[in-house]
């Protein structure tokens, strides 16, 4: 067993886990944060996407101990004081989910995409960059729409702030 310390959503947490424990297992089982999902468990579906040190990664393809000392952001860390994050709000408004299973990973992938591309994000890029996230309900159209709406809103907000 190794002692693992992470900063999850701004909160310092620690726990004991075997070295073979995956980051997603540590989040769900040790920390009880079940917002991050396990879909395929074979690095393909993206339901488990979280941010480690600011970058989107598949938490089923990383050992918890590899993230020791890192900052981790999960779906639980996006809303602040009961107000949805713009990407969450856009998924709500654009019907970007049906069953919702893939949604935590979709939203974490989307926020990472918007961080990298800003309001310049276009539909082609969104579709390309959703390569690592699988949805079996929506046919992706409303997910793409949600991400573009959020990118535009976040870009406008950023411009207004400048």
């Amino acid at each position: 067993m190794t002692s693992i310390s992470l900063n999850v959503n701004g909160r310092q947490v620690s726990g004991e886990a075997e070295d073979r424990t995956l980051l997603v297992e540590f989040l769900r089982t040790n920390l009880g944060m079940t917002g991050t999902h396990v879909g395929c468990d074979t690095s393909q579906c993206g339901a488990c996407v979280v941010h480690v040190d600011g970058q989107a990664v598949k938490s089923c393809t990383m050992l918890a101990v590899q993230a020791n000392g890192s900052d981790v952001t999960t779906i639980e860390g996006l809303a602040s004081n009961g107000t949805l994050h713009p990407v969450q709000k856009a998924f709500h408004e654009n019907h970007g989910l049906q069953c919702g299973f893939c949604t935590p990973g979709m939203i974490m992938a989307a926020t990472d995409m918007i961080r990298r591309h800003g309001s310049a994000l276009d539909e082609k890029t969104v579709r390309q960059e959703l390569e690592g996230n699988i949805c079996r309900c929506t046919g992706y159209h409303n997910i793409v729409k949600s991400i573009l709406a959020a990118a535009a809103e976040m870009g406008d907000a950023q411009q207004a702030a400048e």
């Binding site: 970058q55 990383m62 992938a109």
Partner: peptide, 9 residues
């Protein structure tokens, strides 16, 4: 290569 999340690692 892979997808954005794989490329980060």
């Amino acid at each position: 290569i892979g997808d954005p999340h794989v490329r980060h690692m």
